[in-house]
């Protein structure tokens, strides 16, 4: 399968934070969720992909092209929604249309106004007066109206209510109906991604901890709940991390069927992405 984004050995060092040897690939037509704590490196990775920061080493290819040398060409085909809004609060949606027409060759005015209608966004009201859900929608619509092949979003659903989040997930799934289109979306609201993401990439403290299909993750990983005695019988190569609670041990394992056979274990829970993330971050080894 062709990769839309391919990152090889990306490093970037700041005073107090560093991205370490990031490798990542997003196949065409897929949605990848980039998860991790605030400050884990999600936004830095996205900025590196968009060539908004200087990287120390590594290679980044988008649509198979070098992201620095071919930046102009690549950006015609990317729609971006970053954490800090680029839209002035004193513009209305009609103003935005006029501005974008001059920026993107492929800007589709008709599509843009159709989206505005679909999402019931007023054309002549300043964005300042929009609710946070409406603000996010206008940003996503703006990112979509030049027919990008890749959508990159940083925390699009944080701070939104469940109904607005749901509508945004709808937009995403509509967007990838065309097999040519792919999405990279970072979020710390993992339940949203639990539904629609095809791949999950988990960044912790500047490193990628795991990157695989969501189905593999949710079907194979397990959380064993056991007593101290039971825990001491588990070989350290058979689990990823553990968390000691007051009355029980929670142990994250990579393959629950294998574990069941080996240890004859009774209580193995099916984890959510959030469970996996929590034990990875808070757990010990």
């Amino acid at each position: 399968m062709e990769n839309v984004i391919e990152i090889k050995k990306l490093t970037k060092k700041y005073d107090k934070f560093e991205l370490k040897n990031i490798n990542l690939s997003l196949p065409k037509g897929m949605i990848m969720g980039l998860i991790g704590e605030n400050g884990a490196g999600k936004s830095t990775t996205i900025k590196a992909i968009l060539n908004l920061i200087h990287i120390d080493s590594g290679k980044i290819k988008i649509f198979g092209l070098d992201n620095k040398r071919e930046e102009k060409r690549i950006k015609e085909d990317i729609g971006v929604v970053l954490d800090d809004s680029f839209l002035s609060e004193y513009l209305n949606p009609s103003d935005i249309n006029k501005i974008m027409k001059n920026i993107y060759k492929n800007w589709d005015e008709k599509l843009y106004f159709k989206y505005l209608d679909n999402f019931k966004l007023p054309k002549d009201k300043n964005i300042k007066e929009f609710s946070s859900g409406m603000k996010m929608k206008i940003r996503i619509i703006t990112a979509l109206s030049h027919h990008p092949k890749l959508l990159i979003l940083d925390e699009p659903t944080s701070g939104l209510d469940p109904v607005a989040r749901n509508e945004i997930l709808d937009i995403f799934q509509d967007f990838i109906q065309d097999e040519e289109c792919s999405i990279l979306v970072s979020s710390h609201i993992t339940s949203d991604l639990e539904h629609i993401a095809d791949y999950i990439t988990f960044i912790n403290d500047g490193s990628i901890v795991l990157s695989r299909t969501k189905d593999e993750l949710l079907e194979h990983y397990g959380i064993v709940k056991c007593s101290k005695e039971e825990f001491s019988s588990i070989h350290s190569s058979d689990y990823i991390k553990y968390k000691k609670n007051r009355y029980e041990y929670e142990v994250l394992i990579e393959d629950k069927d294998l574990f069941k056979k080996k240890y004859n274990s009774k209580v193995i829970d099916k984890p959510t992405i959030e469970d996996i993330m929590l034990i990875y971050i808070k757990g010990e080894k």
Binding site: Q173, D174, Q177, H195, D215
Partner: peptide, 14 residues
């Protein structure tokens, strides 16, 4: 495949 994924609100891979 993609239509069903959307309707069921699940991943395309599934």
């Amino acid at each position: 495949i993609r239509g069903l994924a959307k309707e069921l609100r699940i991943s395309v891979i599934t």
